[in-house]
Design a protein around this nucleic acid. Structure first.
Length: 815
DNA sequence: AGCACGCCGACT
DNA sequence: GTCGGCGTGCTC
């Protein structure tokens, strides 16, 4: 194979063709990393995606400089997966590559060069540049491509480096190119020989004048005898400050103890005992059998288990089965912070063979996980959506927990994809089974499972037969009319909270809106405080005493007088969680009331501290945003109150009802987990609203039926496919014209009713970019593929207009 | 995405 | 006269 298609870590379409020099032809394989020159002076680490013999006709291909791997780093399954993502989500392979790889595995021009050892350079036949480079290397040994710029013209760098590599004078320094070195950790042990030669009493006697050394020796000895297989970290000895390193050194000098080094994974892994998991309940056994059946039929599963039904138990059983068959497991979570329960249980069971991968790891830590996965050293990997790109060898099971969670498809990071859907395809490529699990499955997954695309498994009862919480609707309008309210709380709601806290139980108050007040408005002239970067009113945060833009993060001080008319009549409108917190604190002055939202949890360990406080029942009432719907599994929460439930529904989004149902159900799941007497109070102006009524009935089947009917009526997913195209530019007219133009092209290729817009985005200006949106509502099935091709053609036609190249364009498939 | 090239305004 | 602003075009 003479030519290779190489994917580069750039936001460019497709791959680039390079010539494979003869000496590399035997070693090169798809999925390996290579160094290639690109543009005048850059060297990139690319991935070989394809090998072929078709010489390009329109350009001269450059040559691959060198191979960085002797085995493919991207397995075949991943190559298929990347190609699928790129096709399906209309994104570039380069984008995927950038997202998938830790940065130290894809370095750019920081590549270092060195002289080959023992070469005689024939200066006669070198040109000036080559001579300069050799001379520089003789002085400095290692040189970076950026450094070379100092003495060789940029456009000649690649040529010079290539020719010197060809002449075998210089080479790429792989060790530094790999940036990463496994970290070694010091461990200690008693010198083996000493134990054979002398008895303990003799040793202790010899140490009788050095109390601390004696203590330290005994301490190490004790640990070592207690658990001979558990290595003792040197750093552990000095933790409590009783021993110092001098004491250890003295013992080491006397040859009584020794230290040794072991490569230690940067990721801390569990080193304690391994425990068996508990037995499944009847309902769980039944559900597990259904999962087994589905897998035998070759079907994936949607595991719909009500809150506290113990989905985790079933996961654990399946994980264990999968591992006993010699295959590995990928366990996906929306955010790594909510891993507590599952992690603890898996750690006990799988100890060191458990790995973690998520956005919060450092680059070194990521590479470590990559290495371990490649060496098949990890049996269960728990991670967020980016774990889908690890170089797995043989995955047998993929679990997507909390599959409905929107963190699986953040809109801000490219490439845009939904990890839940991608996981199904990933599983297919790996020949692995997939379980999507949730207490409130997404409407799409529910529909697919009901349409027999997946097997639907319903776990209807809570573990231990504990009752689900009871829902009650409070008509706030009526309460207001009969004057039975205090601020945003009806007296009934206050009473119910009182009852719970008087019994020393805990209550949760949900209000899903950050800040104190939505708007600060001048009563005299109507002035409101807009963000200077976005078309958004700024939210007043009382705790921080500032105005914040929730979209670009800009802060401003709160105006004391209206900046426009200097009136002092400033009015706060729109209730935020801070205000609800303030109200609750005033209503319950003797109770400990805490707030949980992104703003109050920003400080280091704030979340952990509050978590412990709630766990220890120091907190009586927690007021919070949707954050409180996740991970707070405590035994004494008996009440969930939602004072302004309507605010959950009135959002401009066809998924608003689904979201409201999910959020309310998820928060409700925190109540009465043990007692079975949990209560949920939904205070609303519209107690007759179908969503509230259906939630009250506690029948998921009915609520999904309702939402699906609505979706069908208005042609929304899962009955259609949505593609949203967003165009942004600093200048409004340009963004507007470009989107009008794209709209007209799309209308040329697609039926009129498929194209909606362009329209100003809901936030017309964000971070100083004006945004316009075009929504495509496409039919499902065979026609979809056809239509998507036309969309692609339209985008291509659009791209041909050079004047619009400066327009930022994002395409969201399955919006 | 980066980077070069090229064309215009404000400075030593 | 030159430095540097960003619009445009190209990268195998």
């Amino acid at each position: 194979m003479n030519y290779a298609q190489i994917v580069l870590p750039l936001n460019l379409k497709g791959s680039f063709t390079y010539k494979v020099p003869e000496e590399l032809q035997t070693g090169i394989q798809t999925g390996m990393r290579v160094l290639v020159p690109f543009g005048g002076k850059k060297i990139y680490t690319g991935i070989v995606f394809e090998l072929h013999n078709n010489a390009p006709e329109t350009f001269v291909a450059k040559e691959v400089i060198s191979l960085l791997d002797d085995q493919p780093i991207v397995p075949q399954e991943q190559i298929k997966f990347w190609n699928w993502l790129s096709d399906y989500y209309l994104c570039g392979l380069g984008e995927i590559y950038r997202f998938a790889f830790p940065s130290s595995l894809k370095l750019e021009s920081e590549t270092y060069l060195k002289l080959k050892p023992n070469v005689k350079v024939d200066f006669e036949n070198l040109d000036v540049n080559e001579m300069y480079l050799i001379q520089a290397l003789e002085v400095r040994q290692l040189i970076n491509l950026t450094d070379i710029e100092a003495f060789i013209p940029k456009k000649d760098i690649i040529k010079t480096v290539n020719s010197l590599i060809d002449l075998q004078y210089i080479e790429i320094d792989e060790k530094i190119a790999e940036k990463y070195r496994a970290k070694e950790i010091a461990y200690v042990k008693i010198n083996d020989e000493v134990l054979q030669r002398q008895n303990i009493t003799e040793i202790l006697l010899s140490l009788k004048r050095a109390q601390k050394q004696k203590d330290l020796f005994l301490h190490i000895l004790e640990k070592q005898t207690e658990n001979p297989d558990l290595p003792i970290k040197k750093s552990e000895l000095f933790e409590d400050g009783y021993f110092g390193s001098s004491h250890f050194k003295a013992l080491a000098d006397k040859n009584l103890v020794e230290e040794y080094y072991m490569q230690k994974d940067r990721i801390e892994s569990y080193e304690g005992e391994i425990e068996e998991i508990e037995e499944l309940s009847e309902a769980q056994k039944e559900a597990k059998n259904e999962v087994d059946e589905a897998f035998e039929e070759g079907k994936n599963v949607l595991l719909h288990g009500v809150t506290s039904s113990g989905k985790t138990h079933i996961y654990l059983e399946k994980i264990e089965e999968c591992i006993s068959e010699g295959k590995n497991v990928l366990f996906l979570l929306p955010e790594i912070s909510l891993t507590k329960q599952i992690t603890q249980r898996l750690e006990k069971k799988y100890g060191r063979q458990l790995g973690f991968y998520h956005q919060k790891l450092t680059d070194f830590e990521r590479v470590e996980v990559w290495r371990r996965i490649r060496q098949n050293d990890i049996k269960v990997l728990i991670g967020t959506r980016n774990s889908l790109f690890l170089p797995f060898q043989n995955v047998g099971l993929v679990i997507v927990d909390e599959e409905h969670d929107s963190a699986y498809r953040p809109r801000e990071v490219s490439p845009y994809f939904n990890a839940k859907d991608a996981a199904l395809v990933f599983g297919n490529f790996y020949g692995a089974k997939v379980i999507l699990g949730s207490a409130t499955p997404s409407v799409e997954s529910y529909y697919n499972a009901r349409k027999d695309k997946m097997k639907y498994v319903f776990l209807e009862e809570r573990f231990g037969n504990v009752n689900l919480p009871e829902y009650e609707l409070i008509n706030f309008k009526e309460a207001q009319e009969s004057k039975k309210v205090s601020g945003n709380f009806s007296l009934q709601l206050i009473d119910e909270i009182k009852k719970v806290v008087e019994e020393k139980n805990q209550a949760i108050v949900l209000h899903n809106r950050r800040g104190y007040a939505n708007v600060v408005e001048c009563e005299t002239c109507g002035y409101v405080n807009y963000c200077s970067n976005c078309d958004v009113v700024m939210t007043y945060h009382k705790a921080a005493n500032e105005m914040k833009c929730h979209y670009c993060g800009q802060r401003a001080s709160k105006p004391k007088v209206c900046p426009k008319c200097h009136s002092e009549n400033l009015n706060e409108r729109g209730v935020g969680v801070e205000q609800i917190h303030e109200e609750v604190s005033k209503l319950f002055p003797d109770q400990e009331v805490d707030r949980m939202d992104v703003d109050s949890m920003r400080k280091k360990f704030a979340y952990e501290k509050l978590y412990e406080k709630i766990e220890d029942r120091e907190t009586d009432i927690v007021v919070g945003t949707q954050m409180i719907s996740k991970g707070l599994d405590f035994d004494h929460i008996e009440l969930v109150a939602i004072p302004k439930a309507d605010s959950l529904l009135y959002v401009q989004d066809f998924r608003a009802e689904e979201r409201a149902y999910q959020l309310i159900t998820q928060v409700s799941g925190r109540a009465g987990r043990v007692s079975g007497k949990g209560k949920v109070l939904i205070q609303t102006f519209n107690p007759d609203h179908s969503v509230f009524q259906l939630i009250k009935m506690n029948s998921p089947a009915k609520i999904y039926k309702y939402i699906l009917t609505e979706r069908q009526k208005f042609h929304y997913p899962p009955f259609t496919k949505l593609i949203m195209i967003e165009l942004k530019h600093r200048r409004e007219d340009k963004a507007n014209r470009a989107s009008q133009f794209l709209g007209s092209i799309l209308r040329k290729y697609l039926p009129e009713d498929c194209v909606l817009g362009p329209e100003k985005a809901q936030i017309a200006r964000l971070n100083n970019f004006y945004q316009f949106q075009i929504m495509l509502k496409l039919p499902k099935g065979k026609k979809y593929e056809e239509y998507k091709k036309r969309v692609l053609a339209s985008l291509k036609e659009f791209d041909e207009i050079t004047a619009y190249h400066s327009i930022r364009k994002d395409v969201f498939v399955d919006f």
